[in-house]
Structure formats: C-alpha cells, structure tokens
C-alpha cells in the first residue's frame, strides 16, 4: 500500500460536513445559501453556519473570495478525494487498533493455503459423519 503524502484531515463536526456537502453539490456558495440548504431545517442561525464556513476556511478545506460585501466559498478538495482520504485515515486507525489488540477481527490472515485445504477437509468429514 502506498503511503498517503497528504496531511491528515482536520477533525470535522457534523455541520461542517453538511456545509461541505452543500458546496460540493453547488460548486460554490455563500453563507445565506448554505444556511438555506442546511441551517434552516436544523433550526440553526445564519451566524452558526457562517462560523462553520469560517472554521472550514481556517482548516484549509474551503477557499473564499469577496464579492461586494459577502464571501463566496468553494472547496479546496473534491468530494471523492475527501472521502478516499477519510476512508484511508479510518483504515489507518483500524490498523493501529489491531496492532494494539483492540480490534476484534472475524478472521486472521492465513499465509498457508494448504492449511485451509486441510481444515476444509476436516469440515467436510464432520459434515459427512453428521449426515451418516
């Protein structure tokens, strides 16, 4: 597995993820648009959505440009790349938990296919014996 050279993703809250999804869906947007899309139905104020966009900007996940008196935001990372990095980071965390014995996996890695053949024969004999 190649090593991911990208810096780790910053921790994100639920609202920040929703705002990112809004920006990915629309290409770009402003605070009012983001509030209408994700804030209104959650009963969140315009300022809270604005703070969320500000935090995303500080975390480097959105860039902004000023048009008249308002900022317009667009993401710096596309949705698929973001999801792939998130998945890779989660898998990396799982790897570390496994190395600490804190992950209960269904089955171990087996390097010896012959051993699997033997076990399969054992199961077949058991089934045969049970049926007899």
């Amino acid at each position: 597995m190649s090593k991911n050279p990208s810096p780790p993703l910053p921790p994100l809250g639920g609202l920040e993820i929703l705002v990112l999804e809004y920006l990915w869906d629309n290409g770009e947007g402003d605070v009012t648009g983001a509030h209408a899309a994700v804030g209104s139905r959650r009963g969140i104020t315009l300022n809270t959505v604005g703070s969320s966009l500000e935090r995303l900007h500080r975390k480097g996940l959105v860039r902004r440009r000023k048009i008249s008196h308002a900022y317009r935001y667009e993401t710096t990372v596309d949705r698929d790349a973001f999801r792939a990095r998130r998945l890779e980071e989660a898998a990396g965390g799982a790897r570390e938990l496994a190395s600490r014995g804190l992950l209960a996996a269904f089955v171990e890695l087996v390097s010896d296919a012959d051993a699997l053949d033997e076990l399969e024969q054992l199961i077949a004999r058991k089934r045969g014996g049970g049926a007899a």
């Binding site: 597995m1 790897r95 496994a98 209960a104 269904f106 089955v107 890695l109 087996v110 390097s111």
Partner: peptide
C-alpha cells in the same frame, strides 16, 4: 473469508495488521 484474504490481489497492510486468533 480466510481464502478471500488469500486471493491473488495482494493483501494490503490493513489486512496484514488485522490479526485474529489461531484459525486452526
């Protein structure tokens, strides 16, 4: 499942790290 993890596709570091206990 053990056979799936022996499949021709090279096992990733993820699978290499997730060790259960003695299958036999």
């Amino acid at each position: 499942v053990a056979r799936l993890r022996l499949a021709p596709a090279p096992a990733s570091a993820h699978s290499a790290a997730i060790l259960g206990s003695d299958l036999d």
